[in-house]
Amino acid sequence: MTKAPMNTTTERAGDSVLVRVAGEVDLATAAELRGVLAAAADLGDARVLVADLSDVTFFGSAGLTVLLTAHERGCETGVPFVVVPGVESSARRILEITEMLEVLTTADSVDSAIS
């Protein structure tokens, strides 16, 4: 079985920065995602950083650490970090099971996250 690699894209959405994540977030890809989110947060004048996890097919515990780190950084810098876990994604299931939906700021869609 071939493993689905993680792919990310970063784009401006008005005065927000949007990072779209697809594929697998696991121990092998978590450091890459951490770097992508840190670089996106460093873009400067963004008022919110959004991570769209709707197309994530696997989300491991290493991904939780990445999200918590980005959340804490947002609290420290005053630039909110918002997660869009998707309706039926692997990320949503893990965030529900671990009760991280109660800790992280989440949105049902990218549009609602950037508005």
Rank of each mutant, 00 (worst) to 15 (best):
V87G: 14
R93G: 11
G44M: 05
I97L: 12
D108I: 13
G86Q: 02
S109M: 11
S54Q: 09
S61I: 07
A70T: 05
C75I: 12
D108W: 00
R20H: 12
P5M: 13
L68N: 03
A39C: 08
A22L: 07
E11M: 11
T10V: 14
T65Q: 14
D42N: 14
A39K: 11
V56M: 07
D15G: 12
A4L: 11
E88S: 15
A22G: 09
S61E: 00
E32I: 08
L67P: 02
R34I: 06
D111T: 15
P5R: 09
L43S: 14
G78N: 05
A91S: 06
V87H: 13
K3Y: 07
T8N: 05
G44N: 06
G74R: 00
L37V: 05
T9K: 12
E32F: 05
E102P: 07
G78L: 10
S109Q: 09
E96H: 05
T9H: 09
M6W: 00
L49P: 02
A40N: 01
A31G: 04
S61W: 01
C75G: 15
I114W: 00
T98G: 10
T8K: 06
T29N: 00
V83Q: 04
A13L: 08
V21P: 03
E11L: 15
L37K: 00
D111Q: 13
